[in-house]
């Protein structure tokens, strides 16, 4: 990690922007969560900590695109909460994004493991 881990670097922000959709879909795999729970889980992890103002509009967009479903549900005498879960489209999207993510990590690892001065070897795939 960078030496200024308290203050998220531009790199973190950029990376998060690109991966947030995958992060949310992954978090909702096999579970239904409401906003505050999602936020709490995301804030547990160093690179996925986002704010309320980022999370809720993103959930709205994912819902509009049909990737997630939202249902109001009340448990006991708590106030009703809006629970999000993956739709079939969302599950497929998660599978696709996961593949792309792993491919991307693999490619970057490959670059990191093969420094110069010789040219980059041909990759198997």
């Amino acid at each position: 990690m960078t030496n200024n881990s308290k203050d998220p670097s531009k790199w973190d922000v950029q990376l998060r922007k690109g991966t947030l959709e995958l992060v949310i879909l992954a978090l909702l795999r096999g579970r239904s969560l409401y906003g505050l729970e999602l936020l709490g889980q995301l804030q547990e992890l160093e690179t996925t900590a986002i704010s309320e103002g980022t999370l809720y509009p993103l959930l709205d967009r994912l819902k509009r695109d049909g990737n997630i479903d939202a249902k109001w549900h009340q448990e006991g005498d708590t106030r009703p909460r809006k629970y999000y879960s993956l739709t079939k489209i969302g599950q497929e999207k998660l599978t696709d994004l996961t593949d792309r993510w792993r491919k991307s990590v693999e490619d970057i690892e490959f670059l990191l493991e093969n420094p110069g001065p010789q040219t980059l070897p041909k990759k198997g795939k």
């Binding site: 106030r79 909460r81 809006k82």
Partner: peptide
Amino acid sequence: REIECHIYD
């Protein structure tokens, strides 16, 4: 409603 709920929670 969702945001209000979050804040009061």
